[in-house]
Amino acid sequence: MDAAHPASIRFDGVGQVFETDSGPLEALRGVSFAVRHHEFVAVLGPSGCGKSTLLRIIAGLIAPTSGAAEVFGMPVTRPRDDVGIVFQKPTLLPWASVEDNVVFPIRHKTGRVGRADRDKAQEILATVGLRGFETRLPDELSGGMQQRVGIARALLMDPDILLMDEPFSALDALTREEMGFELLRIWEARPKTVLFITHSISEAVLLADRVLVMGDRPGWIIEDAPVPLSRPRGIATTTDKVMHDFAGHLRTLLLKRAA
């Protein structure tokens, strides 16, 4: 951890217990990790292992029941402006054009949208490959393009940290792979700290610098594994033997837990 850039995200023994009608439900137990500045970290685990809970704690949407969650060295007490979220579904406003959807966070936060904001939206839409689609309605776009709008919306306020909650899981397999490469391209053009939640082993390995493998009931970190692949990564990486072996290692970890 170099001195100029303290850890973007740091968890220290974070636990989360939800009160439900059928009694307390432990979602996370003793979760500790740190994410460096502009690092791309994937959180990999089975459904219901508390991955989304972890993301919502970083986003400041829920407070951990125990332990400490810090963003840029400050305890997370409420949502921050420098954290952007991309959700599993694009959840766009069906009545608003692509551009209006992208500037929506500013309209929603401040009540007004200026010329500069629209220029910025145009620029970001170009980055995510949606130039020329500004006036379209979400309904007129494919699932992959809708999720690009979702990513553009999260990038608008130029957040230092990008939280992505299984952003490509609703897409078909081919689009999903294509969007993975797209994300790497965007991330290289606009470096950010990314926390990418997924239950796809190959997606995690292809995208991330490091994979946090999670077990369930309650959610905990089985292994904090650096990805032994160089960048830039591309289609060739998907057939790389190192990638294959590493993915196999992660699969063994996850399946051993499940068995």
Partner: peptide
């Protein structure tokens, strides 16, 4: 309303009345 948009609104710390009128 989709839960994600409400979370987006909360993450922006937007006033509640705007959550009602805009979402």
């Amino acid at each position: 309303t989709p839960r994600e948009l409400i979370e987006l609104s909360k993450s922006l710390r937007a006033p509640v009345w705007r959550e009602i009128t805009q979402i």
